[in-house]
Simulated assay, not measured.
Amino acid sequence: MKKTLQKGFSLVELLVVVAIIGVLAGVGIVGYQSYTDSAKSRVGVANFNSVKRFVETELTLLNNNIQTVSGALSAGSSCTSLAPYTVYSKNLSDFVEGMTCYFDTAGYGNAFKNPFDAAGGNQVVFNGTPADAKKGQINVRFFAAADETTNGAVIPAGGLFDSTETSGYFFIEYYTADGSAGAGSSGEYKAKAFQLK
């Protein structure tokens, strides 16, 4: 009687295959993590640029008397209020808070969620404390004094910075890490100053 040999894989061959799969998986995970971090960073910067363009457009319309009532912004901190912002009837703080509400997830405009926040928190915040800011947040706040430079944003000497006035300067900054804005004062992360006249 002739014995037939059973064909199969040896233990050594199986271990080699498992080791190869492990190495490939390790490389893939690192590459995927790098890809997702890069995508989050690009979304954050794109949103930062969108906020700056939106503010430029609103200020162009309001500062040049093309319109005296904002068609996009409500006045004040209530993100559920639909009372429009009217030039000179409200203070600078109302304008900036209304603009922040436009991008709030509970607001009435384009909700921007922080791509680095797994809980889906707001990306645009009003007058946040820099030490408490999280990576990816866009902070809209006021200058502390005239003739000051903060993260690349400049308020000129004699410029109004009082949030209770009906006009003045404010700036928008992007946080590249927890508690750290701008990654220097140049490039795509540079903060930008704006003036409501």
Rank of each mutant, 00 (worst) to 15 (best):
residue 124 V to I: 04
residue 42 R to K: 14
residue 14 L to T: 12
residue 197 K to D: 12
residue 190 K to H: 05
residue 4 T to V: 15
residue 30 V to Q: 04
residue 50 S to P: 09
residue 157 A to L: 15
residue 31 G to N: 10
residue 95 F to K: 00
residue 139 N to W: 09
residue 6 Q to L: 15
residue 74 S to D: 05
residue 74 S to H: 07
residue 107 G to M: 11
residue 41 S to H: 09
residue 105 T to A: 07
residue 178 D to Y: 08
residue 184 G to E: 02
residue 108 Y to S: 07
residue 26 G to S: 10
residue 63 N to W: 07
residue 140 V to C: 02
residue 84 P to T: 01
residue 121 G to W: 13
residue 90 K to I: 12
residue 53 R to A: 12
residue 83 A to P: 04
residue 34 S to M: 14
residue 121 G to A: 13
residue 121 G to P: 02
residue 163 S to D: 10
residue 136 G to F: 11
residue 5 L to S: 10
residue 137 Q to M: 15
residue 53 R to D: 07
residue 181 A to Q: 04
residue 173 E to W: 09
residue 85 Y to I: 00
residue 134 K to L: 14
residue 141 R to V: 12
residue 108 Y to K: 12
residue 169 Y to T: 01
residue 160 L to I: 15
residue 87 V to W: 11
residue 125 V to K: 00
residue 153 A to R: 05
residue 153 A to L: 13
residue 139 N to Y: 06
residue 103 F to E: 01
residue 144 A to V: 14
residue 96 V to A: 03
residue 61 L to V: 14
residue 73 L to W: 07
residue 11 L to P: 07
residue 13 E to M: 13
residue 154 V to A: 02
residue 51 V to G: 00
residue 56 E to F: 13
residue 165 E to K: 15
residue 79 C to N: 01
residue 134 K to C: 05
residue 164 T to L: 11
residue 152 G to V: 06
residue 129 T to L: 09
residue 185 S to A: 14
residue 43 V to N: 03
residue 158 G to A: 08
residue 88 Y to M: 10
residue 139 N to F: 08
residue 193 A to M: 02
residue 55 V to M: 06
residue 114 N to Y: 06
residue 126 F to C: 01
residue 173 E to K: 08
residue 131 A to D: 05
residue 153 A to C: 11
residue 194 F to A: 01
residue 109 G to W: 08
residue 182 G to V: 14
residue 3 K to C: 09
residue 74 S to R: 06
residue 37 D to L: 15
residue 159 G to S: 04
residue 130 P to A: 14
residue 146 A to F: 06
residue 93 S to F: 06
residue 175 Y to W: 08
